[in-house]
Design a protein around this nucleic acid. Structure first.
Lengths: 118, 118
DNA sequence: ATTTAGTACTATGTATTGCATAGTACTGTT
DNA sequence: AACAGTACTATGCAATACATAGTACTAAAT
C-alpha cells in the first residue's frame, strides 16, 4: 500500500536526526561509516538524505568535523558529537521513549475484552 | 532546549495518523473521545491538529462516520475504522515496529565496552 | 425572539524535514 | 587527457503537524 509507505516516510521525520546522532555518538565517522551503521540497524538511508542532516546538525552545533585525506578519492569529513549534541540526543531519546510508550498503549488498548460502544 | 522540542514535533509526523487510527480501532468515537483516549496514552493532541487528520483519513477511505444528534451542542461525527483502515493500520504498525527496533539498536550500540576510534 | 455560553466542526496558511535529483571536486588508473 | 569510483554540495518538491480564525448547533437565560 503506497499510502502506508509514504506515512512511514513521514514517521522518519525527526527520527533520522536522532538516529544519525546516535550512530556517531562516541565513535567518530564519515558519511559512508554512518550509512553502514544505520544499515546495520536496518535503517536504510541514502547519501542525498544523510548529507543535509549532517550539515544541519553541524550548523546547529551538535556535530563537529575534521577533514582527513583519502587515497581513494576526495578528502573526507569525520564527524563527532559535541557536548551540546550529546545533551540534545539525550533529550530526543527521552521524547522518543515517551512517544514509543504512548503508541504502545494505543496499539494495545482495543485488544482487551472490554465491551465497546458498537 | 527549543530545538529538541521542535524535533520531537517532527517525530509526531506520521505517528499521529497511526495513533488516531489505533485510538478509534474497534471502538467508534467522536473527536472529544479520541482526544481523551490519546490523552490517556500521554499523547497530547489538540482539536486543530485532530480534525485535519480525521478528514484526511476519511477521504482516503480508512475511516467512516455517522452523524449523531447531541443535546449539548451541534451534532457529532462518530468515526469508525473501515476494513481498509484496519489493513492500513496493520501496515503502519509493522513499519513502526521496525523503526522502533532500528532506533533501539542505534541508541545502544555505543554503550558497549568495544574500543572506539577516539 | 434574541442573546449568550458551551460545544463541534471547517478552512487556511506556515514551518519543517525527508527525499530525489543534479551538480562539482578529488584521487588513482588507463 | 579521459575515465571510473568516491565524497560532498545545492536545490526544489511533497507531506503533515500546528496555530489561528471562522461557522454552526444547542440549551439556557433574558
Amino acid at each position: 500500500m503506497e499510502k502506508a509507505e509514504s506515512t512511514i516516510a513521514q514517521m522518519r521525520k525527526g527520527v533520522l536526526e536522532m538516529s544519525v546522532l546516535a550512530a556517531i555518538n562516541g565513535n567518530e565517522a564519515y558519511a559512508s561509516d554512518i550509512l553502514e551503521r544505520l544499515k546495520h540497524a536496518q535503517l536504510i538511508v541514502v547519501e542525498g538524505t544523510l548529507y543535509p542532516i549532517l550539515t544541519r546538525l553541524k550548523n546547529e552545533g551538535f556535530l563537529s568535523y575534521r577533514w582527513e585525506e583519502s587515497t581513494s578519492g576526495p578528502p573526507r569529513k569525520y564527524y563527532s558529537v559535541t557536548q551540546a549534541g550529546h545533551d540534545f540526543l539525550n533529550e530526543l531519546q527521552s521524547g522518543w521513549n515517551d512517544m514509543v510508550s504512548s503508541v504502545s498503549m494505543l496499539l494495545t488498548i482495543n485488544h482487551s475484552t472490554e465491551p465497546t460502544n458498537i
